[in-house]
Design a protein around this nucleic acid. Structure first.
Lengths: 197, 197
DNA sequence: CGCTCTGTTATACGATCGTATAACAACACC
DNA sequence: GGTGTTGTTATACGATCGTATAACAGAGCG
């Protein structure tokens, strides 16, 4: 009855479990509580192992942000795909998708905040942020162009739509109850209607 | 020639100098670098003094946020006051003011991020955030009503305008250069024009 | 079965964290 | 000009931080 003291995991699975543990710790203890020890404990792993898979805790936070960002992007892409071929319906789906699960999740904000706090002082993190931001802007700009927004204006309109959605998403996560996800969604649709005329 | 080793300050002045030192440290070292010691060193004061004026470092961060928030509110109020009596011009001034000094300042974002990171796990901080947010929303809602937005819609439209402005402000601070303050300002005016018809 | 590789743990180190405490000294007051 | 109040400093404490290191042990392979 000598069961193994630990078991080896697939390298990718172990990395992923650390990333998800980091997201969980960020979610319920905040950036201040996200230390090497707490994250590794959450992952059920010894503290020393973190450095075996990541350059350091900042690198883990960055990868957690990238992973969460991809998850958000994928959710939005699916929402758009489910909306059918009509451009305007696709744009509406993109915009309102941010106010539904799994994106409208206060826990998710914790990852963003932790990363923003790194991005402001670490050039490599800032570059990663620019990349993720560009990946948001791109598809949205294409969607707007399909909806008839002039090519020259599409870029800044994509910036504005993103700002509107992110701004409401932020407050929805920071202070839930001030307005509802449904109100946010309806207001965003209203603004889109005004934009497209 | 025995000059004083230190000088006593007016209680309010000392508090204020600690608050401003906290803002400076947050600005150029980020939330991770804003410790009791670094902040007190920045203020030219011994570490122990912080607790003489504040309950702890989190309380100081909160007061720094409140102070910065009031400064922003005041700047916006001045911009509105300078815009004259015409409601629409006042609204435009309010909106575009966020993209000019002293608000469009990447350093300012550091204070917000540090506070957000506290607000998500500390109920007292969340309450303070709600207060500051309400203080933003109120005047804007009044402005929108003056511009002819129906009373029933003014609240969510104020939420939306705030979101649009804050969202662009955030990206402007996080990744300067992707778009310019002037572009942000022009786009915000464009959206306001669509909103008011 | 025994060897090898390496994922994993246990432990320790120096640094820094927020805070508590007591001595010191500036300034107001009589 | 002593004297008292208290703003301020200096120092120390225990906890926790991120990381380095060496020993251990799981798992594949001959």
């Amino acid at each position: 009855m000598t069961r193994p003291a630990y078991r080896r995991a697939e390298p990718d699975a172990r990395r992923q479990s650390l990333i998800e543990a980091a997201a969980r710790v960020l979610a319920d203890r905040g950036a201040a509580g996200a230390s090497v020890r707490t994250i590794c404990a959450e992952a059920g792993v010894s503290p020393g192992l973190l450095r075996h898979y990541f350059d350091g805790i900042d690198a883990l936070i960055a990868e957690t942000y990238a992973w969460a960002g991809e998850r958000v992007s994928r959710a939005l892409e699916e929402a758009v795909a489910d909306a059918g071929p009509e451009p305007r319906a696709r744009l509406t789906a993109y915009v309102t998708g941010s106010f539904r699960a799994p994106i409208a999740d206060p826990d998710l904000l914790a990852t963003w905040i932790a990363f923003w706090s790194l991005a402001r002082s670490n050039p490599a993190m800032e570059a990663m942020h620019r990349q993720v931001y560009a990946d948001y802007l791109g598809p949205l700009e294409a969607l707007l162009t399909e909806c008839g927004v002039p090519a020259g204006a599409a870029r800044m309109q994509a910036v504005a739509v993103t700002a509107l959605v992110d701004g409401m998403w932020l407050e929805l996560c920071l202070a839930p109850g001030v307005f509802s996800p449904e109100e946010a969604s309806a207001t965003a649709r209203d603004w889109i209607a005004r934009l497209l005329g």
